[in-house]
Structures are given as structure tokens and as C-alpha cells.
Design a protein around this nucleic acid. Structure first.
Lengths: 119, 119
DNA sequence: CGGTATACTTACTAAAATGTATGTTCTTCC
DNA sequence: GGAAGAACATACATTTTAGTAAGTATACCG
């Protein structure tokens, strides 16, 4: 439907829109937020505590991007002080699974990788 | 062994060394190079053509980082003009598989994601 | 009453990633 | 002879990403 789009999608092609999605999913904070959300619905401040080192600004931005891709669901309860719940959409859960596979592998193989770095 | 290291490794912890590896693997060009190398040994210029949009500078830098993590093997034949072969190490092949799972998923679900973006 | 917590936004700054252009060294092709 | 190709390194400019600080409205706790 789109002008620059090609079939099938191919991330190795510079102009393919999948490239943008890839960037979102593999962004530093995108990966970690997806991972954190695997534990279930959480609110902003809880996520911030869970994802080590993320700033409020980056967390907010990352959540907006992921929401824009349909991976994260944002539910704001109209109360004061604010209460907002974030969770994975079904699509987001699938993505989170692949991301978790990758991070899980890294954690498991870290000793080997660290050893290779030393060499 | 390392000072700041913790057990078990946890990417959600800001100080964990797995964070660095994650950044290497999920870097824009890191992902695509790993993917491209799944097709087997290739030389620099071939990789450059295969990975759409990568500059010589970025490709060289990315390959060095991946080599440093023990994921990519670099073999230089001492001839002129230069001939250098790049391939995945066994460790790199495992990583590439997870990365390919993720990118494969993105390519497959791209229509859904694009639809979500429109909404 | 003063401090804390909530979920952000906005403005400004700093750091990191990336691109562009150029040089290298020699060989093959027209 | 001049151009192109190989696999980079290096210097410089630009873009993207990220961090810091401050502001917002209100309610609860002591």
C-alpha cells in the first residue's frame, strides 16, 4: 500500500519500513522495557525502578514509541495523583518473547563472551 | 571475578556487563551484520553490498566490535589488493539465530505493526 | 503546614552514533 | 596511462540519543 514498501519485507534493505520497527525494538531502553513488562502490568514508577538506569524522560519516550507500534498498552486512570498502567499487547508479548530469548542467551553465555573479550 | 560483576548476570541491572554485550548485539548495524553473515563467509565489500545503507566506516567498526565479543571471525589473506573473510564463530552463530528470530518476526508481523501505527 | 509520591512535559546540555570525504597501496582492466 | 577495486584509517561535521533540572496539580502522611 505504501509507496516505498516492498514485498516481502526485508530488514537488510535500507528503505524497508521494518528497519524502523527494528530500531524501536532493539533500542537500548526498548529492549529492557519489553523485558520488564513480561512480568505483567506495571505502572510508570514501578517500571522506572525495575529498569536499572533509565531516566523518566527516556522511559516516557520509549513507552510512547512502543505504544505507537502497538506493542504496549497504556491505560490511564483519571485520578489525582495520576495512575497509569502499562502492559504488553498480544503483539507485544510475542516481541518480548524473542527479545527475552536474546537477552537470556546473552546472560547465559556472558562468561564465554567475557572470556573472548579478554583474549 | 570482576569487581562490579554480579551473579547471575541480569540485563535489567545497570551495572551488569551483559548490558554492553546487549548494546553490541542490538546495535543498528550489529543486528544486520550478524544476519548477513548467516549466509556464510563473506568478504568486506560483499557484506557492504548486502547490508543496505551501511557505510564503510560503520561496517568496519561494527565488525571489530563483534570480533571483540568473539562472535565474528576475521581472516585476512596477506595479499594485495587486500582480501579479508568474515564469518560467524560458533558463538556468533547462536547469537545470529536469536537475532534472526526477532527480525523474522518483525518481517512477518510488519503489516500488523504498520496497521497499529496508523491507528 | 511541609514533604512525598504520581506521571509526565519542556528546555537545555552533553555524549554517543553515524555520515562524508580523503588517503593508502598495489594490481588488474580498457 | 588513467580508472577501478580491495579493506580499511583518520579527520571532521552532523544527527541522534540521552541525561539533568525544573515545572504541574493534587492528595495523603505526620
Amino acid at each position: 500500500m505504501n509507496a516505498g514498501m516492498q514485498f516481502p519485507p526485508n530488514v537488510l534493505a535500507a528503505e524497508c519500513p521494518s528497519r524502523q520497527v527494528l530500531k524501536h525494538l532493539t533500542s537500548q531502553w526498548g529492549v529492557l522495557v519489553l523485558l520488564a513488562l513480561q512480568d505483567g502490568t506495571q505502572r510508570f514508577s514501578a517500571l522506572r525502578r525495575r529498569v536499572g538506569g533509565v531516566s523518566e524522560r527516556m522511559l516516557a519516550q520509549t513507552l510512547q514509541v512502543l505504544e505507537g507500534d502497538g506493542l504496549v498498552l497504556r491505560v490511564a486512570h483519571q485520578v489525582v495523583p495520576p495512575h497509569v498502567d502499562y502492559s504488553l499487547t498480544p503483539l507485544g508479548a510475542e516481541a518480548a518473547q524473542r527479545v527475552a530469548d536474546l537477552t537470556g542467551w546473552i546472560e547465559a553465555k556472558l562468561p564465554e563472551i567475557l572470556a573472548a573479550q579478554g583474549a
